Amino acid sequence: MSTPVVFIHGLWLHASSWEPWVEVFAQAGYAPVAPGWPGDPDTVAEARRHPEPIADHGIDDVVTHFAALIAELPAKPILVGHSFGGMIAQKLLGQDLAVAAVAIDAAQIKGVLPLPLSALKATLPVFKNPGNKHKAVSLTAEQFRFAFGNAISEAESDALFERWAIPAPGKPLFEAAAANFNPHSPAKVDTANELRGPLLLMTGGKDHTVPEAVTRATLKQYRHSDAVTDLMEFPDRAHSLTIDAGWREIAESALTWLGKQSL
């Protein structure tokens, strides 16, 4: 039986942005799926036309949603998450709902303290209005270029924006921002779990939204667990690394790492 792989997108990207990855993982012998978050419409166009169902879903809602999907699979999956999807993947792995996880430029979990200025600027479209906590917020092409496409050409960034960008719920960002002041934060991950499967953290050295300092601080959160936790760096890549022209390098690096874990 092929091992299931569940791809988990982050904010501002539609689940269909994983399509090239799904194809590559299927060719490698896995059984991949790329479901949306709760409320996500089936298409980018529909998400832009009707963003209301996307709004007001928090981290716990998304974790519960994916846990229910995992429960219907024939076996525990490998999780591959990008940005907030990387945080969700870590939470699910910590709950022993997966055999392994790859967290790519993952949003900060509770306990991570660095808050680089570029990350604040990238998320300003949400935080500039407290009311956005309960809304779905869109980026402009210019905002997308700063948050995602700063390491690629403006033309490529604009093309990716047109193809994949959708409104995103503001609630997860507000929850993550308050995580270190909330003992019961939904951004808390069981980083001390000794029995969980292996975890790979991937980081882009030019990422504005989740700078390398955040990923390195995340790695330190796992220091009390002997379970496999690896870090892989791509110095010239930014937050678009899963969807831009260099996506295949990231995908194949993840596949190589999974192979080394006998997965």
Rank of each mutant, 00 (worst) to 15 (best):
I109P: 07
L113I: 15
P116F: 02
N132K: 12
P116A: 03
P130N: 06
V137M: 05
A122F: 04
K135V: 02
V126F: 14
H134D: 13
V137A: 08
P116V: 01
A107M: 12
Q108Y: 13
L113P: 00
K128M: 15
A107K: 01
L120V: 07
L124K: 06
N132R: 15
P116S: 01
K133W: 04
K121Y: 09
T123Q: 11
A136W: 01
K135G: 02
S118V: 02
G131C: 09
I109L: 15
P114V: 01
P130D: 04
K128H: 11
P116I: 00
G111Y: 14
A122V: 06
G131N: 13
H134Y: 12
G131A: 15
A107H: 03
H134G: 08
I109D: 06
L117W: 09
L124T: 04
K135M: 05
I109K: 09
F127V: 02
K133A: 12
P130Y: 12
V137K: 03
L115A: 07
P114S: 03
V126E: 14
N129S: 09
V137D: 10
Q108L: 09
Q108M: 08
A119E: 00
I109R: 12
A119L: 00
I109G: 11
K121L: 15
N129G: 05
P114A: 02
L115E: 00
V112H: 09
V137E: 06
N129A: 10
K128C: 14
H134I: 07
K128R: 15
A122S: 14
K135F: 01
L113K: 14
L124E: 06
L113C: 03
P125W: 05
F127H: 08
T123M: 12
A119C: 01
A122T: 07
L120M: 03
G131D: 13
L117Y: 13
I109E: 09
F127M: 06
F127I: 03
T123D: 14
A107G: 09
N132F: 14
L115I: 01
A136C: 06
I109Y: 11
V126K: 11
L113E: 08
N129M: 04
L113A: 10
A119R: 00
S118D: 02
V126T: 13
K128F: 15
T123W: 09
V112E: 02
L115G: 02
K110I: 07
K128Y: 11
A119G: 01
G111D: 15
V137Q: 08
V112D: 07
A107D: 06
T123Y: 14
K135Y: 00
L124V: 03
N132T: 05
T123L: 12
L113M: 07
A136K: 01
V126C: 12
